[in-house]
Computed example of a mutant assay.
Amino acid sequence: MTWTIYLSGEIHTDWRDQIEEGAKALDLPVCFSGPVTDHAASDDCGVVILGQEENKFWHDHKGAKLNAIRTRTLLEAADIVVVRFGEKYKQWNAAFDAGFAAALGKPMIVMHGKDHQHALKEVDAAALAVTETPQEVVQILRYVMEGKLA
């Protein structure tokens, strides 16, 4: 079986690459998916494809709807959802993805630093694992897929 892992969350660090490289090094049977991580493309896709908007609300609204097609489809297809909350920015989209994954009954791994523990307590309560590093996520994937510890 090939497991599909959806990687949601912040786009400003290389955490996705670290998880993908770690899984590849262990030869785990995985396929990764996730949102569009090109910030400008994600923000502007709606107006580039469907036409400009003078009002920023409608500009963002168009983009959010197009991005939701990808997000919903890939979240629904995922076997496991990993949601990363970064240090610098509030990732409202990551929180929304976590709620959507929980509503779908998807097994969820959440990743964030200790400074976010209180703010994310409800998200953490919905997760089956809460981690701080990409390496912990890789070890969890290895364990659930192969039954092996590091």
Score class of each variant (00 low, 15 high):
residue 148 K to W: 02
residue 110 V to R: 05
residue 102 A to E: 08
residue 52 Q to L: 09
residue 85 F to R: 05
residue 126 A to T: 04
residue 84 R to T: 05
residue 114 K to F: 02
residue 98 A to D: 11
residue 103 A to I: 00
residue 89 Y to E: 15
residue 135 Q to K: 14
residue 111 M to K: 06
residue 105 G to E: 03
residue 24 K to D: 12
residue 142 R to D: 14
residue 129 A to G: 00
residue 109 I to P: 00
residue 115 D to G: 08
residue 58 W to I: 00
residue 100 F to H: 13
residue 122 E to P: 01
residue 77 A to D: 10
residue 128 L to F: 08
residue 69 I to V: 14
residue 124 D to F: 02
residue 50 L to S: 09
residue 82 V to P: 04
residue 100 F to W: 15
residue 44 D to N: 14
residue 38 D to P: 03
residue 53 E to D: 07
residue 110 V to I: 07
residue 125 A to H: 06
residue 149 L to K: 11
residue 24 K to I: 01
residue 110 V to P: 00
residue 40 A to S: 03
residue 86 G to W: 10
residue 42 S to L: 08
residue 57 F to P: 00
residue 75 L to C: 05
residue 142 R to I: 07
residue 130 V to T: 11
residue 49 I to L: 11
residue 81 V to G: 04
residue 93 N to K: 09
residue 127 A to I: 06
residue 76 E to A: 13
residue 83 V to I: 13
residue 43 D to A: 15
residue 113 G to H: 11
residue 92 W to H: 08
residue 86 G to I: 02
residue 106 K to P: 01
residue 120 L to D: 10
residue 51 G to L: 10
residue 20 E to M: 15
residue 55 N to Y: 00
residue 103 A to P: 00
residue 132 E to S: 11
residue 87 E to P: 03
residue 124 D to I: 11
residue 34 G to A: 04
residue 107 P to L: 06
residue 49 I to F: 12
residue 136 E to Q: 15
residue 37 T to Y: 14
residue 58 W to A: 02
residue 115 D to T: 14
residue 96 F to V: 13
residue 51 G to K: 05
residue 50 L to C: 05
residue 33 S to W: 01
residue 92 W to F: 14
residue 93 N to G: 15
residue 136 E to S: 14
residue 76 E to M: 03
residue 110 V to K: 03
residue 139 Q to A: 12
residue 30 V to N: 02
residue 86 G to K: 07
residue 50 L to G: 04
residue 97 D to H: 14
residue 85 F to K: 03
residue 137 V to S: 09
residue 62 K to V: 12
residue 68 A to I: 01
residue 107 P to Y: 07
residue 114 K to L: 10
residue 144 V to A: 00
